[in-house]
């Protein structure tokens, strides 16, 4: 039986798809057979970040409508063994997803995979609720700023009231993933600190991803940033995946680095 993990946030542009791609890849790299499902019907992005946009023939909606089989729609990742992508439809909208259809697809995926990562669309409407409804666990992606924190709080409320587990009186295990974290700006009080966000949301932390140029570069190249182990962001995602699997990993990249004399002189970053 697979573990279904939704990557959600409420707010848009905080890094849900980047995180979904990185975490799914990280889980596969650790030897767990993983599928990442794009729930953002109509605004398909995951395939771009995973670098498989040219290989999309059938999508999630086709499978739900029984126009294609699951195996026809699943795309096997070329870089990482044991990683598959189920892309969203670009020509439809979120009403194309039905509760029964989604459940059937997730049930089928559960037979073959250890982890199902659901990349949720932004917002709190039907599309986002559909993505989180069947989740066993949730990774709430939050930026260290007040509006993102409030939206995360809202989606956490929905998780604990409108998910299937909530309806059964069970809990959805919550994880906080802080992205685009800039310790220098935290030091100058321009940004909320890890402790601030943790205190407001009262959710256990699973990772802190530093703001990094490597993320944008990786997105444009269509390779999940976790594959770039030279970058801070890539290493931070690896740490987050290990924590998700139950390991205790020390936090990196959350303290401001003191710049050396030459670095300052040369304006290095």
């Amino acid at each position: 039986m697979a573990k279904i993990i939704v990557v959600t946030s409420g707010k848009g542009g905080v890094g849900k798809t980047t995180s979904s791609a990185a975490i799914a890849t990280g889980l596969a790299l650790q030897g767990h057979k993983t599928v990442v499902v794009d729930f953002d019907v109509g605004l398909r992005n995951l395939d771009l970040i995973m670098g498989c946009e040219r290989r999309v023939v059938y999508d999630f909606v086709n499978v739900i409508n029984k126009e294609a089989t699951l195996n026809q729609a699943l795309i096997k990742d070329k870089r990482t063994d044991g990683l598959f992508i189920l892309p969203a439809s670009q020509t439809r909208d979120k009403d194309a997803l039905t509760m029964e259809g989604v459940q059937t697809v997730l049930d089928d995926l559960s037979k073959d995979f250890e982890f199902i990562i659901c990349d949720s669309p932004a917002g709190i409407e039907q599309g986002a609720q559909m993505a989180l409804y069947f989740a066993d666990e949730a990774i709430v992606v939050t930026n260290p700023e007040v509006s993102s924190v409030r939206d995360s709080d809202r989606i956490l409320g929905i998780l604990q009231s409108k998910s299937m587990r909530a309806e059964q009186g069970k809990n959805v295990k919550e994880h906080l993933l802080l992205t685009r974290y800039n310790p220098d700006r935290v030091a100058t009080a321009e940004m909320l600190s890890v402790a601030d966000v943790e205190e407001i949301l009262a959710v256990p932390l699973v990772g802190v991803i530093p703001e990094s140029e490597a993320v944008l570069k990786a997105s444009n190249q269509g390779a999940p940033v976790i594959l770039d182990q030279e970058s801070n962001a890539g290493q931070a995602y690896t740490d987050a995946v290990r924590r998700l699997l139950g390991e205790t990993v020390e936090y990196r990249f959350i303290e401001a680095q003191k710049k050396g004399f030459f670095k300052r002189l040369l304006g290095g970053k």
Binding site: R150, D153, R154, L156, G157, I158, Q160, S161, L201, A202
Partner: peptide, 8 residues
């Protein structure tokens, strides 16, 4: 005994 979230 669970946090009461925004919107709840």
């Amino acid at each position: 005994d669970r946090p009461v979230r925004s919107g709840q």
